[in-house]
Design a protein around this nucleic acid. Structure first.
Lengths: 235, 235
DNA sequence: AAAATAGTGTCTCTGAGACACTATTAA
DNA sequence: TTAATAGTGTCTCAGAGACACTATTTT
């Protein structure tokens, strides 16, 4: 037997992005308005087809740069999962792999090739909107993944523009989890976790009130023991 | 503007399976010997191309049935992640989505279409072998995922043929984690976690020693609080 | 009785939650 | 001084690890 040839390829693959940030204490997601059919004009997650010779990660970072101008060094994308329902794209068979990014207050989005408009939308509002394709499901899955990630990793700090205060970091948790945290227990937790945050020695002076110590992200990536939400079940 | 047509599809997609089980106290993975080029005769993970009109999950369960005779009701497959390096398959552009399954002592594997031989291999041995494609990387990722899953879910019980004893369940943790656990603390943990295991009222009589109470899997899927390994970091 | 395995009790230490209290700034 | 925000201290409780001890079976 000689070299086996593959049957003619029949599936297209996209990498779609769920880019989350916290703005004014509220969790936002980057959405575009679709500039082409199908779902012309509908809000959707940014993303696009994987090209020949390109990895999924490569495609995801390329889309990220096109939509936001952010480069791979600025932010980390994490693969979430694949969506493969045969009817999910009316143009034909398309499988999508979703990528999750968590960022600090990001530069204003740049309208990309396929995007009539790219903008930050509060996630609650985005979930109440009719999104293109199955993007609502993708967004929900990524949200839950992001929430879980805060429990076990130091990812919350990537939401903060450096330098940041302990309260800034706490506000991230509160925005992502939609839950108030005890300031004093939160401080104890993050300051006792080696490598989570490192003090700069500087302070930030608010309009009123005691100034707060400033920190930068530390080298730790895992939170051991975890910092758990109180109320959640995920199956 | 009318309906946009997609450029000609250029990517093939496979669903590959990492099926784990515990046999004689050791973690095993199901491998096949490839019956076709490339990598003819090399051990590999079972898997195959996704067909038209089929979801990834559908393809994964179809492959599972072909290799082991197990049906969707018998075992749960969980999507892990996608592998997309352009050069990973010499036949052309192939993206693979890996699925993880945890099962009790499974029926002897059935040699499938593409498989010259399917058999259980201890994972340590499998990792020391030259596997086809990038299957070693996939196997390592799935292993770490399985280990982490035991910490936060009741998945370990799916490794046990019902009914099982507390010691049986502990042996699963010990095999998957490669780590001894204190029998008495382990018992306290699993019996105090509501819905993890439910007593049948029956007992099993070993060749020698006190008989052990028998249990079946309970309705809980999450372990709250988690049952953590002592020594592990995962980035 | 001895060997073997199952199962209980208990001590200690860590860390989370609740929350009272102190500190430092601007107005 | 007051308002506002940052930060500390402390009490209690849940749960993990260590490990001594008891229970029930076969030989």
């Amino acid at each position: 037997m000689t070299v086996t040839r593959l049957p003619r390829p029949s599936i297209r693959v996209t990498a779609d992005l769920v880019i989350l940030t916290v703005r004014s204490g509220e969790l936002h997601v980057l959405l575009i308005d679709r500039g082409n059919p199908p779902y012309l004009g509908r809000p959707a997650l940014p993303g696009g087809f994987v090209r020949d010779g390109e990895t999924l990660e490569g495609a995801a970072y390329r889309e990220l740069a096109e939509e936001t101008g952010l480069l791979a060094g600025d932010i980390t994308l994490e693969q979430l999962r694949a969506y493969s329902e045969p009817g999910r794209d009316p143009r034909g068979r398309v499988i999508t792999i979703a990528y999750l990014a968590l960022g600090p207050e990001l530069p204003l989005p740049v309208a990309g090739t396929d995007a009539a408009a790219a903008r930050w939308i509060p996630v609650e509002q985005a979930l109440a909107t009719e999104l293109a394709f199955d993007h609502e499901e993708i967004l929900r899955d990524c949200l839950e993944s992001a929430r879980a990630r805060l429990e076990h990793t130091t990812a919350a700090a990537t939401f903060c523009k450096e330098p940041f205060t302990v309260a800034d970091l706490r506000h991230v948790y509160e925005a992502v989890w939609g839950q108030r945290l005890d300031p004093s227990n939160f401080r104890r937790k993050v300051t006792n976790t080696a490598g989570f945050i490192v003090p700069t020695g500087e302070r930030r002076f608010p309009d009123v009130g005691r100034p707060a110590a400033l920190y930068t992200r530390g080298p730790a990536t895992l939170l051991i023991p975890p910092l758990l939400r109180t109320t959640t079940d995920e199956p």
